[in-house]
Simulated scan of single mutants.
Amino acid sequence: MWTHDATVRSAYWIGGGQWAGKTTVAGLLAVRHGLVHYHCDYHDARGHEDRRIAARARRGEPPC
């Protein structure tokens, strides 16, 4: 749930090795307990980083 200062009040994170079934387990838990399931993996995170770097470049700022 988001708070007034745009932070997440509570979140559950599932960690584990590649192909361990984290996404499957998260989806099953979300359905069973009425939770919101956000899917984010390396490819999603990489796209976010690419957009962040592109935005900095458009503003003439260094990519870091």
Rank of each mutant, 00 (worst) to 15 (best):
R56K: 13
L35Y: 15
V31N: 06
W13V: 12
R56A: 10
C40N: 10
R56I: 00
R52W: 05
R9S: 08
Y12A: 07
G21F: 04
E49W: 07
V8W: 06
V31E: 12
W19Y: 13
Y42P: 01
W19C: 11
A26M: 08
H37L: 03
G21E: 04
I14V: 15
M1Y: 03
Y42I: 11
Y42T: 12
G16D: 05
P63H: 06
G27Q: 08
W13L: 13
H4E: 05
V25C: 10
V8A: 08
C64H: 08
R58Y: 03
Y38I: 08
H4T: 02
T23D: 12
R59M: 09
A20N: 04
H37F: 13
H43L: 12
H43D: 13
G47P: 07
A20Y: 02
T3L: 05
T7V: 05
A45S: 01
R46L: 15
A6M: 08
G60P: 06
A45T: 00
T3W: 00
R9L: 07
D5Y: 07
A6I: 02
V25Q: 12
I53E: 03
P63L: 06
Y12C: 09
V31W: 03
P62A: 14
R58S: 09
Q18S: 14
R9T: 02
D50L: 15
L29Q: 13
A30L: 02
V36E: 07
W2F: 05
R58I: 03
G34L: 04
T23Y: 08
W2K: 03
A30P: 02
G16H: 04
T3E: 04
W2M: 05
H4C: 00
H4V: 01
H43P: 01
G60T: 08
R59T: 00
D44N: 06
A45L: 07
L28C: 00
D50Y: 11
H39E: 15
G47S: 15
G16R: 05
T7S: 09
R9H: 07
S10Q: 07
Y38D: 01
R58E: 13
A55P: 01
V31Q: 11
Y42R: 13
C64K: 03
C40H: 09
E49S: 03
A26Q: 06
Y12M: 11
G21K: 04
H33K: 11
H39K: 15
R51P: 01
L28W: 00
S10Y: 05
T7F: 07
E61H: 14
E49G: 01
L29E: 11
Q18D: 09
A20T: 10
D5H: 11
P63Q: 06
T23P: 09
D41C: 02
H33M: 10
A30R: 01
A57P: 03
Y12W: 10
P63T: 06
M1D: 04
E61A: 14
I53W: 03
A55R: 13
D50V: 14
I14T: 14
Q18E: 13
R56T: 00
